[in-house]
Simulated assay, not measured.
Amino acid sequence: MRVSGTARPGFDGVRDAFADVVADSRGGAAFSVVRHGEVLVDLWGGLADPERRLPWREDTLCVLFSGTKGVMAAVVAALGVLDPGSEVRRYWPGFTAGVRVHHVLAHTAGLPYVEADHDLLDNRACADLLATQAPLWTPGTRVAYHALTYGYLVAELLRRTTGRSAGQAVAEVLARPHALDLHLGTPAHLDERVARLVRAPDYRISTFLDDPERRRIVERMYAGLLDSDDLINSARYRRAELAAGGATGTARAMATLYDLLAAGRVASRDALALATRTWSVGTDAINDRPVHFGLGFELPDPIGTYGPATTAFGHSGAGGGRHGAWPEAGLGFSFLTNELRAENADGRADRLLAALHDAL
């Protein structure tokens, strides 16, 4: 399939790696690298809609899934209205558990799913249920990825401290000031630009996990979100402002965001240093996957999520998306794809980041 876009001289290896990724795809993809405001790599190719055989274009938007968590981490760091050490109930009267803000952001709160019956697209209702739910463990004693509840909790904290919805915060703090093609609560007039998501035949979540009892916990965590092509491709999903996984954007927008973060132009350097130091690390108590978190950002882990760079921060997304910064190189990068693959069978972003590292 055709590859379009540009790669600066010296980055031919990145273009070759991307061409291999697209050639092996049922869908499409984009990869962008931005350093100090200069676009070094901006490539796209394949099919944005495999059903209608529509090509991926320069302005194709794609659902970020959990790449959205990194966007929200950037909002939190930029606003500076949440004290990581404060209890959630300081900002949220009626929140009953002794959870602190950093527990929420670093996935140690012990609230990885909503216990009661709920509509996973209703942020306020899910937040209300979590406010009185007992944690599965003493907050701070274990780390386990909060796939959807991270978003309900962060969105409610921001609403209570700023009066903004999560989508408004993304627009007003990030997208508009920095001219980013990035949206949480994607408006209807952009629907035709959104790539249609497809799942590889062997796609599954939590591929590090074999225990059947904890597999049932994972199923509660995701509440069927990634099991339904109709749901993940629905306008209702994109409109819901899910702060854990519902944003859309272009690879160029995400690479630019992380370039701006690395340069101290979104949050102060002190705020970024606080957000990108270790707040939790270890083996996920539910998923058996090695994890390493700052305040909402993923950090380098033993399985090389952020490539060969020794210093990095960002956030990956379900199915293969990878977005982040290499601060020592002074750049941001983003790999977006609409073909969801299982983590243990997906080396696309790894190949691209290895080629990028070689090019530098």
Rank of each mutant, 00 (worst) to 15 (best):
M72C: 07
R199T: 07
T310R: 06
L353M: 15
A275H: 13
P300W: 11
G98H: 07
V63D: 05
V22N: 01
A97D: 03
G151I: 04
L274H: 10
L299M: 00
P93S: 11
I217V: 15
A309E: 02
S228G: 04
V266N: 05
A171I: 06
S234L: 05
F31A: 06
H146A: 06
V104T: 10
A48G: 13
S25E: 03
L184Y: 02
I232K: 02
R35T: 09
D128M: 06
G45W: 07
S280H: 13
P55K: 11
D181I: 13
A275C: 11
T186V: 12
D229W: 08
L226R: 02
D346K: 05
D229I: 07
L274P: 12
R236G: 14
E156D: 13
Y306A: 09
S334V: 09
A30I: 12
Y150S: 01
A106E: 13
R2N: 13
D210A: 14
A48I: 04
G167K: 05
V173W: 01
F65M: 15
D12H: 13
A7M: 07
T96Q: 05
D350A: 14
D119Q: 13
L64S: 08
S316C: 07
A253E: 01
G294F: 01
S268F: 01
A251F: 07
A23D: 05
Y150L: 08
D227Q: 03
P290T: 08
E172G: 08
G13P: 09
